[in-house]
Amino acid sequence: MTKVTAQMSVSLDGFYTGPRDTRNPKEMSGWMRGPEAPGFFRITRWAVDAMGWRERMGFAGGEQSINSEIIEETFAAAGAYVMGRRMFDAGEVPWGEEPPFHAPVFVVTHRTRDVLERQGGTSFTFVTEGLERAVELARDAAGSKDVAVAGGGELLRQVLSAGLLDQLELHIAPVLLGDGQRLFDPSLGLGADDGIELVPTRVVEAPEVTHIRYTVTGRSKLVLDDRGASGDLVGPAQPE
């Protein structure tokens, strides 16, 4: 059964890039010189050093490690991708003529553009009918494989908030950035009495990063836990 999956590198304090780049989208090809890049490259250092990523990008070298195996596994599982327009604008030039996806990519956007065909089996289709339509098209294209949310963080939050995400894998880098774009923020639309529940299904530890995979089980109401309480006590007793 086709799953909708996502994976994201984050800092220990929850940021996936540095502060947001506010330039015009037409200038995003210079993204690596903007404020988001330093934080992004710190938390993705584990991937840049991995042989699986470097081979996918057409680079030599890299380490054959558990990190590399996870990258290879992630690419192999995806039959199609969904992506935000900012992610595409930032990546179009750096990815070059053979982007790393090697599968159809559906870009959620308000700006129309003809389908962009690249080498290696990657195509970019620009979907203006909304997120749900992009996921639907990606499901059709993925066959028996998964639909992977390729970023950025804003689109991932939209997919999660809409209840479309089945699996989330976080790659947690041991660094505190202190500022930047936080992966989970109020745009998830959660109230004071509800949350999105996740069940951890795999934890892989490495010196550079900890990989945690979750199954997303959906929204649920938050309730006061008064197990073991007596009288009006509704939480753990505090030491005197």
Rank of each mutant, 00 (worst) to 15 (best):
G143K: 14
G191L: 13
P186Q: 12
T210E: 09
R139K: 15
R157W: 04
T217S: 14
L198T: 00
E69F: 02
V223E: 06
D114L: 14
T2L: 07
A237H: 13
A47F: 03
S161V: 08
D185N: 14
T22M: 12
Q167P: 01
E136W: 06
P104R: 01
A76Q: 11
A142K: 00
V199C: 07
D49N: 12
M1H: 12
R23E: 09
L156S: 00
V82F: 05
F124T: 01
Q181C: 10
M8R: 14
V223W: 04
R56L: 07
G153H: 01
G151C: 00
A50R: 04
S144F: 08
N24D: 15
G153M: 02
K3N: 13
A80D: 03
G191W: 12
R42Y: 07
R182E: 05
A206V: 06
S187C: 12
S29M: 11
L168V: 08
A80E: 04
T210L: 07
R54S: 03
E136L: 11
H171G: 03
I196G: 10
L222I: 14
T217P: 07
G191I: 11
G130C: 13
T215Y: 04
M51V: 11
V203S: 12
L137H: 11
G143S: 15
E132I: 10
L160M: 15
I212C: 07
P94Y: 01
R23D: 09
A80K: 04
T128K: 09
T210A: 11
T112W: 14
V234N: 10
D225N: 14
F101W: 13
G151V: 02
E27F: 08
T17P: 01
R219A: 02
K145H: 12
V82T: 04
T2F: 03
E240F: 02
I66A: 15
A76F: 08
R85S: 04
P207L: 00
V10T: 01
E69H: 06
G84D: 02
V199Y: 07
E154Q: 09
T128A: 12
V199P: 04
G189Q: 08
A192C: 14
L156G: 02
N24E: 13
N24S: 14
V10F: 02
L137D: 10
